[in-house]
Amino acid sequence: MTTPWIAGATGLVGRALWAQLPDAVALVRRPQAGAVVVDYGRPDSFAALPAPSHLFIALGTTMAQAGSQAAFQAVDFDAVLTVARAARDRGATHCGMVSALGADARSGVFYTRVKGQAEAAVIALGFERLVIARPSLLDGQRKQLGQPHRWGEALALRLTRPLAPLIPARWRPIAADRVARALRLALDQPGPAVRVLESAALRTLGAP
Protein backbone atom coordinates (compact mmCIF):
# COMPACT_ATOMS: atom_id res chain seq x y z
CA MET A 1 0.00 0.00 0.00
CA THR A 2 1.38 3.42 -0.89
CA THR A 3 0.21 6.78 0.40
CA PRO A 4 -3.31 6.01 1.55
CA TRP A 5 -5.68 8.87 2.28
CA ILE A 6 -7.73 8.93 5.47
CA ALA A 7 -10.74 11.24 5.22
CA GLY A 8 -12.07 12.16 8.62
CA ALA A 9 -8.83 11.47 10.48
CA THR A 10 -9.94 13.21 13.67
CA GLY A 11 -12.96 10.98 14.34
CA LEU A 12 -12.93 7.80 16.40
CA VAL A 13 -12.34 5.38 13.53
CA GLY A 14 -10.33 7.86 11.49
CA ARG A 15 -7.94 8.50 14.36
CA ALA A 16 -7.56 4.74 14.90
CA LEU A 17 -6.78 4.27 11.21
CA TRP A 18 -4.21 7.05 11.38
CA ALA A 19 -2.52 5.36 14.35
CA GLN A 20 -2.41 2.08 12.43
CA LEU A 21 -1.23 3.76 9.21
CA PRO A 22 1.09 6.54 10.41
CA ASP A 23 2.43 7.24 6.91
CA ALA A 24 -1.04 7.94 5.51
CA VAL A 25 -2.19 11.38 4.40
CA ALA A 26 -4.64 12.40 7.10
CA LEU A 27 -7.34 14.73 5.78
CA VAL A 28 -9.07 17.11 8.18
CA ARG A 29 -11.32 20.15 7.99
CA ARG A 30 -9.56 22.12 10.74
CA PRO A 31 -5.82 22.49 11.43
CA GLN A 32 -4.34 19.47 13.15
CA ALA A 33 -0.69 18.63 13.69
CA GLY A 34 0.58 16.26 11.02
CA ALA A 35 -2.63 16.43 8.97
CA VAL A 36 -3.66 18.15 5.75
CA VAL A 37 -6.55 20.61 5.79
CA VAL A 38 -8.99 20.15 2.90
CA ASP A 39 -12.29 21.67 1.88
CA TYR A 40 -14.75 18.90 1.07
CA GLY A 41 -16.88 21.41 -0.78
CA ARG A 42 -14.11 22.02 -3.33
CA PRO A 43 -12.86 19.07 -5.40
CA ASP A 44 -9.72 21.02 -6.33
CA SER A 45 -8.76 20.95 -2.65
CA PHE A 46 -7.29 17.49 -3.24
CA ALA A 47 -5.26 18.32 -6.34
CA ALA A 48 -1.94 18.89 -4.57
CA LEU A 49 -2.06 15.69 -2.52
CA PRO A 50 0.08 12.68 -3.42
CA ALA A 51 -1.79 10.16 -5.56
CA PRO A 52 -3.36 7.49 -3.33
CA SER A 53 -3.56 3.77 -3.84
CA HIS A 54 -6.06 3.31 -1.02
CA LEU A 55 -8.71 5.60 0.44
CA PHE A 56 -10.31 5.28 3.86
CA ILE A 57 -13.48 7.29 4.49
CA ALA A 58 -14.39 7.84 8.12
CA LEU A 59 -16.50 10.97 7.74
CA GLY A 60 -19.65 11.45 9.73
CA THR A 61 -21.64 13.69 12.02
CA THR A 62 -24.93 13.56 13.92
CA MET A 63 -28.19 15.39 13.35
CA ALA A 64 -27.69 17.21 16.66
CA GLN A 65 -24.24 18.46 15.65
CA ALA A 66 -25.21 19.23 12.06
CA GLY A 67 -28.30 21.17 13.07
CA SER A 68 -30.30 20.39 9.93
CA GLN A 69 -30.85 17.64 7.40
CA ALA A 70 -29.07 19.69 4.73
CA ALA A 71 -26.00 20.15 6.91
CA PHE A 72 -26.00 16.47 7.83
CA GLN A 73 -26.18 15.46 4.16
CA ALA A 74 -23.33 17.84 3.33
CA VAL A 75 -21.02 15.76 5.53
CA ASP A 76 -22.37 12.23 5.31
CA PHE A 77 -23.14 12.24 1.58
CA ASP A 78 -21.63 15.21 -0.25
CA ALA A 79 -18.22 15.18 1.45
CA VAL A 80 -18.02 11.39 1.24
CA LEU A 81 -18.70 11.40 -2.49
CA THR A 82 -16.35 14.34 -3.14
CA VAL A 83 -13.33 12.68 -1.54
CA ALA A 84 -14.16 9.28 -3.04
CA ARG A 85 -14.40 10.76 -6.51
CA ALA A 86 -11.19 12.78 -6.04
CA ALA A 87 -9.27 9.70 -4.91
CA ARG A 88 -10.68 7.57 -7.73
CA ASP A 89 -9.75 10.23 -10.28
CA ARG A 90 -6.21 10.29 -8.87
CA GLY A 91 -5.82 6.55 -9.33
CA ALA A 92 -7.04 4.96 -6.08
CA THR A 93 -8.14 1.39 -6.65
CA HIS A 94 -9.13 0.42 -3.09
CA CYS A 95 -11.59 2.14 -0.78
CA GLY A 96 -12.60 1.35 2.79
CA MET A 97 -15.71 3.21 3.92
CA VAL A 98 -17.25 3.53 7.37
CA SER A 99 -21.03 3.60 7.10
CA ALA A 100 -23.56 2.68 9.78
CA LEU A 101 -25.65 -0.19 11.05
CA GLY A 102 -28.89 -0.40 9.09
CA ALA A 103 -27.73 1.77 6.17
CA ASP A 104 -30.34 1.51 3.42
CA ALA A 105 -30.91 3.92 0.54
CA ARG A 106 -34.65 3.15 0.70
CA SER A 107 -35.01 3.56 4.45
CA GLY A 108 -37.77 5.74 5.85
CA VAL A 109 -35.31 6.99 8.48
CA PHE A 110 -33.32 9.97 7.24
CA TYR A 111 -30.03 8.98 8.92
CA THR A 112 -29.90 5.42 7.60
CA ARG A 113 -31.22 6.52 4.19
CA VAL A 114 -28.39 9.05 3.69
CA LYS A 115 -25.86 6.46 4.80
CA GLY A 116 -27.29 3.99 2.28
CA GLN A 117 -27.31 6.59 -0.48
CA ALA A 118 -23.66 7.38 0.23
CA GLU A 119 -22.81 3.69 -0.03
CA ALA A 120 -24.59 3.44 -3.38
CA ALA A 121 -22.84 6.54 -4.73
CA VAL A 122 -19.38 5.23 -3.79
CA ILE A 123 -20.17 1.80 -5.23
CA ALA A 124 -21.07 3.48 -8.52
CA LEU A 125 -17.57 4.98 -8.78
CA GLY A 126 -16.24 1.52 -9.61
CA PHE A 127 -13.34 0.95 -7.25
CA GLU A 128 -11.60 -2.35 -7.91
CA ARG A 129 -12.09 -3.17 -4.25
CA LEU A 130 -14.57 -1.51 -1.89
CA VAL A 131 -15.15 -2.58 1.70
CA ILE A 132 -18.06 -1.00 3.57
CA ALA A 133 -18.06 -1.23 7.35
CA ARG A 134 -21.39 -0.98 9.16
CA PRO A 135 -20.48 -0.82 12.84
CA SER A 136 -22.97 -0.64 15.67
CA LEU A 137 -22.50 1.94 18.44
CA LEU A 138 -18.86 3.05 18.44
CA ASP A 139 -17.00 2.84 21.73
CA GLY A 140 -14.15 5.27 22.23
CA GLN A 141 -12.92 8.35 24.07
CA ARG A 142 -14.21 11.33 22.09
CA LYS A 143 -13.21 13.78 24.82
CA GLN A 144 -9.55 12.80 24.51
CA LEU A 145 -9.75 13.56 20.80
CA GLY A 146 -11.26 16.98 21.43
CA GLN A 147 -14.55 16.02 19.83
CA PRO A 148 -17.96 17.39 20.84
CA HIS A 149 -19.71 15.36 23.50
CA ARG A 150 -22.48 13.15 22.12
CA TRP A 151 -24.99 12.84 24.94
CA GLY A 152 -27.09 10.12 23.32
CA GLU A 153 -24.05 8.03 22.50
CA ALA A 154 -22.59 8.48 25.99
CA LEU A 155 -25.86 7.42 27.62
CA ALA A 156 -26.21 4.39 25.34
CA LEU A 157 -22.66 3.28 26.13
CA ARG A 158 -23.20 3.73 29.86
CA LEU A 159 -26.26 1.50 29.69
CA THR A 160 -24.90 -1.16 27.33
CA ARG A 161 -21.29 -1.64 28.45
CA PRO A 162 -22.22 -3.65 31.57
CA LEU A 163 -24.58 -5.80 29.49
CA ALA A 164 -22.27 -6.26 26.51
CA PRO A 165 -21.82 -10.05 26.89
CA LEU A 166 -25.60 -10.47 26.77
CA ILE A 167 -26.12 -8.32 23.68
CA PRO A 168 -25.96 -10.03 20.25
CA ALA A 169 -22.70 -9.23 18.45
CA ARG A 170 -24.61 -7.39 15.71
CA TRP A 171 -25.85 -4.78 18.20
CA ARG A 172 -23.08 -4.75 20.80
CA PRO A 173 -20.96 -1.58 21.06
CA ILE A 174 -17.68 -1.98 19.20
CA ALA A 175 -14.31 -0.33 19.78
CA ALA A 176 -13.28 2.11 17.07
CA ASP A 177 -9.79 0.62 16.78
CA ARG A 178 -11.33 -2.78 16.10
CA VAL A 179 -13.42 -1.32 13.27
CA ALA A 180 -10.32 0.35 11.83
CA ARG A 181 -8.29 -2.86 11.99
CA ALA A 182 -11.03 -4.92 10.37
CA LEU A 183 -11.50 -2.40 7.57
CA ARG A 184 -7.78 -2.24 6.89
CA LEU A 185 -7.34 -6.02 6.84
CA ALA A 186 -10.44 -6.69 4.75
CA LEU A 187 -9.38 -4.20 2.11
CA ASP A 188 -6.24 -6.19 1.36
CA GLN A 189 -7.89 -9.60 1.40
CA PRO A 190 -9.06 -11.27 -1.81
CA GLY A 191 -12.78 -11.18 -2.35
CA PRO A 192 -15.62 -9.58 -4.31
CA ALA A 193 -15.37 -6.07 -5.67
CA VAL A 194 -17.80 -4.87 -3.00
CA ARG A 195 -17.82 -6.38 0.48
CA VAL A 196 -20.11 -5.25 3.30
CA LEU A 197 -18.99 -6.01 6.85
CA GLU A 198 -21.70 -5.85 9.49
CA SER A 199 -20.70 -5.20 13.10
CA ALA A 200 -20.42 -8.87 14.12
CA ALA A 201 -17.99 -9.53 11.25
CA LEU A 202 -16.01 -6.40 12.12
CA ARG A 203 -15.70 -7.63 15.69
CA THR A 204 -14.30 -10.99 14.56
CA LEU A 205 -11.95 -9.72 11.86
CA GLY A 206 -10.69 -6.78 13.89
CA ALA A 207 -9.92 -8.69 17.07
CA PRO A 208 -6.48 -7.81 18.48
Rank of each mutant, 00 (worst) to 15 (best):
M63D: 08
A74V: 03
L55S: 01
A92P: 00
A124R: 15
M63L: 11
V80M: 10
F72Q: 10
H54R: 04
F72L: 07
A118V: 02
G116M: 06
V98Y: 10
A70F: 02
A100E: 14
A66L: 11
A86T: 03
A118R: 12
T93K: 03
A64I: 03
S107T: 11
G116A: 08
M97N: 07
A58V: 06
V98K: 01
A64M: 09
A58R: 02
A51G: 00
V114L: 07
P52G: 05
A121H: 10
G67K: 13
A47G: 09
S99C: 05
L101K: 06
A124E: 15
G67D: 15
V114W: 12
K115E: 15
L49S: 05
H54P: 00
A47W: 04
A121E: 11
L59G: 08
Q65D: 15
P50S: 07
A51K: 06
E119V: 00
Q73D: 12
V75Q: 09
D104I: 00
Y111A: 05
V80T: 13
A118D: 13
R85N: 11
A120F: 07
A51P: 00
G96V: 01
M63T: 01
T82C: 09
G91T: 07
A86C: 06
P50G: 03
L101D: 02
D89V: 13
F77K: 06
V122Q: 06
G91V: 09
G126H: 11
A103V: 02
Q69R: 10
D89I: 09
A120M: 12
R85P: 02
A79Q: 12
V75S: 04
V122L: 01
L125I: 08
A121Y: 09
V83I: 02
V80Q: 13
A124G: 14
L59K: 03
S107K: 11
A86M: 04
P52K: 04
P52Q: 05
Q117R: 14
T61K: 12
A79H: 12
A48P: 01
A103T: 04
H54V: 08
C95V: 15
A92F: 03
A100F: 06
A47N: 13
L49A: 05
D44P: 00
L59F: 07
H54M: 10
S107Q: 11
T82I: 04
A47V: 00
V98L: 09
A70K: 09
V80N: 12
V75R: 06
G126F: 07
V80W: 12
D78W: 01
A66Q: 14
A121C: 05
A124T: 14
F72V: 00
D76Y: 08
M63P: 02
V75W: 10
A70Q: 13
R88D: 14
A118G: 07
R85Q: 15
G116K: 11
A70P: 07
C95M: 14
A71C: 09
T93N: 01
T61H: 13
A70I: 01
L49D: 00
D76S: 04
A92E: 02
F110W: 14
A71D: 14
S107W: 11
R106P: 00
R106A: 15
A79T: 07
D104K: 05
D104T: 01
A100Y: 10
A105P: 06
H94D: 15
G67S: 12
D76L: 04
T82P: 01
A51V: 03
A84C: 08
A121L: 08
A124M: 13
A70Y: 00
